[in-house]
Design a protein around this nucleic acid. Sequence first.
RNA 1: GGGCGCUUAGCUCAGCUGGCUAGAGCACUGCCCUUACAUGGCAGGUGUCACAGGUUCGAAUCCUGUAGCGCUCACCA
Length: 1029
Amino acid sequence: MNAITLEKSYLPCDHEPVILARWKAAGCFHAQASSDRAPYAIFIPPPNVTAALHLGHALNNTLQDVLVRVARMRGMNAMWMPGTDHAGIATQTVVEKRLLMQGKRRTDFTRDAFVARVQEWKDEYEAVILAQLREMGASCDEARTRFTMDPVCTAAVREAFFRLFHDGLIERGKRLVNWDPVSQTALADDEVEMEEVDGFFWYLRYPLEDGSGHVTVATTRPETMLGDSAVGVNPRDPRAAALRGKRVRLPIVDRVIPIVEDDYVVMAVEHGGDPQDVKARFASGFLKVTPAHDANDWELGRRHNLPAINIMAPDGSISDRHGWSDVSPAAREFVGLSREDARTRVVAWFKKEGLLESVKPYRHSVGHSYRSHVAVEPYLSDQWYVRVTDDRLRGSALRAMDPAQHDGSPAFAAGDAHLGDGGLQFFPARYAKTFQQWHEGIRDWCISRQLWWGHRIPVWSKSFDGDQDLQETWTQRGACTMQRTLPDGRIELFVCLPESLDGSLGVELTAAGFVQDPDVLDTWFSSALWPMSTLGWPNPERFGMDRLLDTFNPSAVLSTAREIITLWVSRMVMFNRYFLKGRLPFHSVFIHSVVQDGFGQKMSKSLGNGVDPRDIIATHGADAMRFVLTQMSTATQDVRLPIDMLCPHSHVAFAPKTITTSAGHIVTAPTQTSPTDPSKEMVTAYGVFAGLVTATAEMPLARNTSSRFDIGRNFATKLWNASRFVLAQLPPSAEESASGASVTAQSLADRWILARFAATVAHIEESLAQYQFNPIAEALYEFVWRDFCDWYLEAIKPTVKSDPVQQAVLRTVLDGILRIMHPVMPFVTEALWTAVRQVKCVPVRGLDVPDSQLLATARWPEPIAAHDTANTIESFERVQALVTSIRNVRGERKVNDKRKITLTAPAEIMAIVVEGGGIVETLAGLKDVRLTDPANRPSDSVAFPHLGCELLVSGLMDAVDIGAERKRLEQTIIDRGRAVTGYEGKLNNGGYLAKAKPEVIEETRRMLSQAHADLVAAQRALEVLSTVP
RNA sequence: GGGCGCUUAGCUCAGCUGGCUAGAGCACUGCCCUUACAUGGCAGGUGUCACAGGUUCGAAUCCUGUAGCGCUCACCA
C-alpha cells in the first residue's frame, strides 16, 4: 500500500487558504530589486477604489497571473506590481452620494474633513480589492503594493508636473471645457459619453438693426442666445452680399451684434447647401454665434474677434456674474433660471413676440458626464492643460509603435533612432490602429479637475497691478513661473514648485499673498506615471527602492481593456518616454476580451451588474474560475456569461428576476423570492449597490453563480482523481532507484504520452508568446483529460504495477502536468504537488523535472522531443482509430463494458494490435485476437470495415440480431458510398488535378481508396449476412 | 458619420495564412455506480457556418454588398 493517499475528492475551500498561507510564508512572489535572472514585470492596471472587483477584473488578473507564473517558473525575476487607483471623480462621486443619503453635502465639510471621509472609503475598498486578488490566487508582489496617492506616487506626480511646467508642456488656458454642472468639474474629452436624445430645432427670428427685416437662426439650444455675439452666414450664400455690414438686434438682450461671414456656416439646402448633409436640411443658413457656449462658435469667435459672453454659473443656471454685463430689463427675468427652465422660457418669449418661425423635432447626440450622467455644458473656464499635441509627447507615442503595426509610416526622426522607437506591439494587432488614430486626432489634455479628492495642483498664483517683474524672486530659488495678462490689464503670476520646496517657498508664497490652485489633477495624470512612480521615480533611493526602476521598467506587457488604450496606455507611453529618455513603459499591450452579463451588457462597477469573483470561488473554487476565464479569453469575441443566483435559504441556483433601469439597462431586481419557498425573500447585490435595499437576517444577500464554471470545477476534480490514481500505482518509495541513470520510455503508450506532453508544452508556449489564452486552456484540457486520463491511464492499467520504467514515465508526466497546469490552476496543483513530490523515481530521458519545495517556484518543463515523435504519434493514432472502431460496434450493439469479445482481423490490422503492445485489447475489451481465416468465419460475428479491411468481432452477445446488423451495414454502405462519390468527384475534376497541391491530391487519393475499400468490406459483410440462414 | 469587431449545433464558444464529409464544452439520448473520478466512463443524434453576389479546381475561411448586434471615436445648426 502506498503511504501517500489523497482524500476522495478535491474541495477547494479546504485547500485554498492553506496554499495561500504557504505561498505567503515562503514569500515566493517577492521579486528581487536586482538579480542575475532576467527581469519580467507586469504592472497591474490599478483598479479604482469605488467598489469591489467583478469578473471582468478577475479575467484580466487571471491572465496576468498566468503570464507572471509562467515567467517565474521559467526562472525569471518576476514581479507583478499590485495596487489601486484613487479615481478622483468616481470615488468622490460615490462618497458624495453616500453622504447625500444621510442628508449631507460635501460643502458641509471642510476640505480636509471631506477628504478624510473619502480616505475611509478608500481604505475599506482597497482592503476588499487586495483580498479579492489574493483569493483568486494572484501572485502579486504584495510587499510592493501601491496606491496612486502614496507618498512615492505623489512625489512622482510632483516631479512630472514640475518638469512639464518647466519644459513648456503645461499651460493655463481660458477655453471651453466639458463642464459637468452637477459635479461642477471639468471633464476630459474621453469622460464625456454621447447619448442620443430627442430634441428640437427652433427657428428664431433676429431683427436687423436697421429695421429692414430679419434673419432666422436655427438652434437646438435657444437659451444660449443670451450670450450670442454675432450671427454667421456663409460668404457663398446668395443672401450674404445684401447683408454685408449689417447688424442685428438680439431679442431679449437688446444687444447689437454683427453679421459675420464664415465658411464654417452650413448653407440651407434651398440656398445652395448640400442636400445630403443633414445639417443643411435643418439649417436656415444663419448661425447664431455663442463663443462662450459652443466649441465651434468659440473657434469662429476667435477668427472674427468676437467677445465670449458667459451667461451661466458653474451650476448651469443663467447668471450675470460670470461674464455677462449687458443684462437688459427683459433679460433680467431669465437670470437665475436653470438651463432647462431658461430654454422653455426663451422659446415662450420668442413665440409670444411672434419671433418663433417654426419648430422641428430633431434627434441628436448630446454629451453626458460619465459620472453624473447629466448633459455636459461647454463652459468657459480657466484650466490647466498638457500640450500633448507637442511632438515630444504625441510624436513620441506614434514613433513608439512597431512599424509593422503602423498604418502608414511612423514619423521617425530621420536618421536618428531613439530608444524605444518602434518597440511597442499590440495584441491582437488590430488595436494598434486605435492607438494610432487616437494620437492623430488628439487635442490638448485638460488636466485640472474641480474636485477635492486627488493630487492637488502644485501651482500658486497671484494677480498684480501693472508690470511688476517678480518672476526672478521665485525662479532663482528653484521654482518655475509663468505669467499672463488678464482682460483687465492686471498681471497674473503662476509659480510652480517642486515638492522639495513646499516647506520653504510654499510658505513664503502664501505669506506673500499667493494662493495655491484649489483644483486637483485628472486621475490619469498619476495613472500615467504608474510604471515609474511605483518603482520610485524620480528618486528610488529616497523610498528604499534602489535599482527597482532600472530593473523593472520597461515592463513586459500591459494587460488591459479596449477603452483604456486612449485613457491610459497612450498617456503612459507619452510620459514614460518623455521622462525616461525614450524608454517604453512596456513592450507589449494585450487587450483582453470584455466580460458581459447574460444580457450582453458589459460588467461594470458603475452599472452594478458585476459578479463578485468571491461568489464564484465559493461555489466552484478559484481554480475553476481561473480555468474558465482563461478558456473564455478568445481573440475576437467578447464573452457573454449568463448568471444565476444562489438562494441563501435553500442553496438552490435559479435565474433571477430582472428589471430595466431608467437608462435601459437590464439588472437583477433588488429583491428575489426563494425558488423553493415563496414565503422567503432575499436581496441582490444590485439592490444593495443601488442603495435600494439592505441585507438582513430575514432577507439575506443572494450570491451569484454560473454553470459556466462547472467545466473548471470538473477539470480540477479530474486532475485530483487522476493524481490519486497515479499515486496508488507507484511503489511507496523508489528512492533506492532514484539515484540511477535515466530510463528511456519503451512502450508505445509511454513514448506517445511523452511526445504529446512535449507537443502540448510547445503549443502553450507559442500561444503565450501571442497572448492567446483560449488555446492554452484548450491544450491543457485536451492533454490532461483526453490524452492522459482517457487514453494513457486506461492503457497502462494492466501493466504499470509491474513495469518500473512505466512507473517512472507515469510519475514524471504527472509531475510535468502539474507544472504546466499550475499557472492556470495554481491551488489544486500546489495541493497535489505536496503529495506527488514525495514519490521519488528514476528520471526519464527527455523530461527533466527537478524537485522544488513549492510548485509555484518549480521549473517550467522543457521536454526534449524524441527523434521518432512523429512516428510514435502516428502509431498511437492508428491504435486509437482501431479501438474507436471496435468500441463503435460495441456501443451500437449495447454490449456491456465488462463483456470481453474476440476480434478477427487480417494481417495488416494485426500489425496495429501488435504495435499497441496490448493496449488495443485493454481499451477495446478484447479477450482474443485472431487472424482472419476465410474458411473459418465465426458464426456469431459482426462485421465492420476499418482502414479498408473487413473486421469481425464475435462474442458481443448471445445471439446476433440479423435485422439490426443488416440495417447497420446498409447505413455504412450509404455513408461510405457518399464519401467515395465525393472523392471521385474531386479527382475527376481536371482543374483540381491541374492546380491543387500534389500532397493534397495524394491525400484525396488515399482517402478515396480507403473509403472504397471500406465500402467493399461492408458490402461483402452484407452478402455474408444474407447467406446466413 | 468614421473606425474596429461579431453573426458557426438548443446554449456558450473554437476553427478563418482556402483543401480530410465543420469541432469542443454544456444540454439531450442509450448503455455502464468497471477498485482514480457519477463533479465519472463508453457510445450516439444534432448545423442551407447571418444573407446576396464574386474570385477559385475548391470558400465557414479571401473580396464586394446587405441586414442585425456590440464596442469605440467624432458630432448639441
